[in-house]
């Protein structure tokens, strides 16, 4: 079984700071991590590898520093890793990104047919959830998003049964390989890598691919290949007026009393909801 897991290196958003004067993002010193949603997909892929044998290839598109995330993924047990990196990819939106990643997956598929592609449900920096469906559509794979559980895989009949989270309930879907899956958060928890995996992750050479390795049409990647244009990036305006501060002498209990009085007098209708 050959499984490709697409991951993304993202800044640990909990630690992003905005420069107070220039309003730009201070990227220096922000730790880079594997997008947390990707780990649920990677773990699921590793479990399938444990069960059926085969290979798990991790794939990422990003700057050279994304190597660290690929090595981390290998330390959990991924077999090998591809870093798709090229200045021409810079500024790719989700459509261009899914094109570039699909090009790389096609090349992997030529080397050894791909049965499953896993992607993260979404990333924590872009939050679009669009690249996985983009890959599935381009690869003509069955698209199984928000999967809470893989119930069954039958390699002989090439059938796969999953539970998919939908609005107000869970769909049980029977589908066929090859398929693209995104796993729901909390569907599993990432293993600790073995010592062997950690050594292997440090030693194994990565496959370094660029646009010439696998991309047929250069016009479909980067800014040129992106239908969307970012016309403005900005810090949201505060409301016209800042919060009215509730001040009272006498500590927390006086402050609480003042707050409740304020709520009841300013919003008399709310009072009925609050003490019904």
């Amino acid at each position: 079984m050959h499984i490709v897991v697409c991951i993304k290196q993202v800044p640990d958003s909990a630690q992003i700071r905005i420069h107070p004067v220039t309003n730009t993002i201070m990227r220096q010193g922000v730790p880079a991590i594997i997008n947390p949603y990707d780990l649920f997909s990677l773990e699921e892929a590793l479990r399938l590898k444990d069960r059926f044998g085969g290979r798990v290839t991790v794939l990422t598109m990003g700057p050279p520093m994304a190597e660290a995330s690929l090595r981390k993924a290998m330390s959990f047990g991924a077999t090998d890793a591809v870093l798709l990196t090229d200045r021409k990819f810079a500024g790719s939106d989700t459509l261009a990104t899914s094109y570039a990643l699909t090009s790389a997956i096609r090349k992997l598929h030529e080397e050894e047919p791909v049965d499953l592609v896993f992607c993260g449900k979404q990333t924590i920096d872009g939050d679009t959830a669009q690249v996985g469906p983009g890959i599935a559509t381009r690869m003509n794979m069955q698209q199984l998003t928000y999967v809470a559980k893989i119930e069954d895989v039958n390699l002989d009949s090439r059938e796969i049964t999953v539970q998919r989270r939908s609005e107000g309930g869970v769909q049980v879907l029977k589908s066929r390989l090859p398929a693209m899956i995104t796993m729901l958060e909390g569907s599993n928890s990432m293993r600790f890598g073995t010592m062997d995996d950690m050594f292997r992750a440090a030693r194994t050479p990565l496959k370094l691919w660029n646009k010439d390795t696998c991309v047929d049409d250069e016009a479909k990647v980067g800014l040129k290949g992106s239908p969307t244009v970012v016309s403005k990036v900005f810090v949201p305006k505060p409301r016209a007026e800042k919060a009215k501060m509730i001040e009272a002498e006498g500590g927390a209990s006086a402050q609480a009393a003042a707050a409740i009085d304020m709520l009841f007098t300013t919003y008399p209708k709310l009072a009925n909801d609050l003490v019904r």
Binding site: T94, T128, P133, T137
Partner: peptide
């Protein structure tokens, strides 16, 4: 989100989430 990601790709157009 599942549908939008798929049809923006078949229609080859821009999608903002």
């Amino acid at each position: 989100r599942d549908l939008a990601g798929a049809i923006a790709t078949t229609l080859l157009t821009g999608l903002t989430a």
